[in-house]
Design a protein around this nucleic acid. Sequence first.
DNA 1: CGCTATACATCGGAATTTTATGTATATTTG
DNA 2: CAAATATACATAAAATTCCGATGTATAGCG
Lengths: 113, 113
Amino acid sequence: MVYSTELLKGTLKTIVLKLLADNKKMYGYEITQTVKELTQDKIQITEGALYPTLHALEADGLVTTETEYIGKRVRKYYSLSLAGKTRAKEKVSELASFVQTMTLLLDLKTKTI
Amino acid sequence: MVYSTELLKGTLKTIVLKLLADNKKMYGYEITQTVKELTQDKIQITEGALYPTLHALEADGLVTTETEYIGKRVRKYYSLSLAGKTRAKEKVSELASFVQTMTLLLDLKTKTI
DNA sequence: CGCTATACATCGGAATTTTATGTATATTTG
DNA sequence: CAAATATACATAAAATTCCGATGTATAGCG
């Protein structure tokens, strides 16, 4: 992994919410793989971090779940609730603002996309 | 906007190193105030977070200290060691890369400066 | 003289994540 | 076809990191 793990702290929930906002429904393993691909292996979400986070989101009423069976294997899909969609937007824009502030503070040069 | 504290996690050390890299020598209280001003109150470094961080940096040999007396009041200045200067560059560029990755991952639009 | 600002610092606890471990099925490859 | 790898869920102890509260003390101002 490229980044020191401490940097990732605090961003996991936002990443998960954003992915669910874009994809309607996803399962845990899919989330880890999607993040890995999108970031070219730079960000690797471990299962020990992801599942507690998903469960916490569910407990907060931000996501709902549905279980499917692929053959005999369980697959648990997570989707944003209405409250989850709202929260996802809040979290993403908060992070956008934070990134902006850090950019100014540290004189980082970022590319516009 | 004030950021949820979890976002700041992992960035504190980098912020401190960057400030010291730009300012040669600073004392604790000055660091908290400088960050506050530079970010227009968006990022507030608490003393409970700062001092342990400074001490850790010192223990790692990244900063050196010198004590001055302003009247009877102690003021402890922190400066980067050679290793600290190197580490500061590493940390800042790591954060720059991380910010870039997060921007792509979350479709954040950031302004170029 | 009291209030606010400056300036250091510690410490318990809260929050979050990593590492390790566990269980089980599916698929690929030598 | 056996072994390795990938898929897929999950928990739990330990580590990390930071916040909030608290403490001490001096300086300046009205």
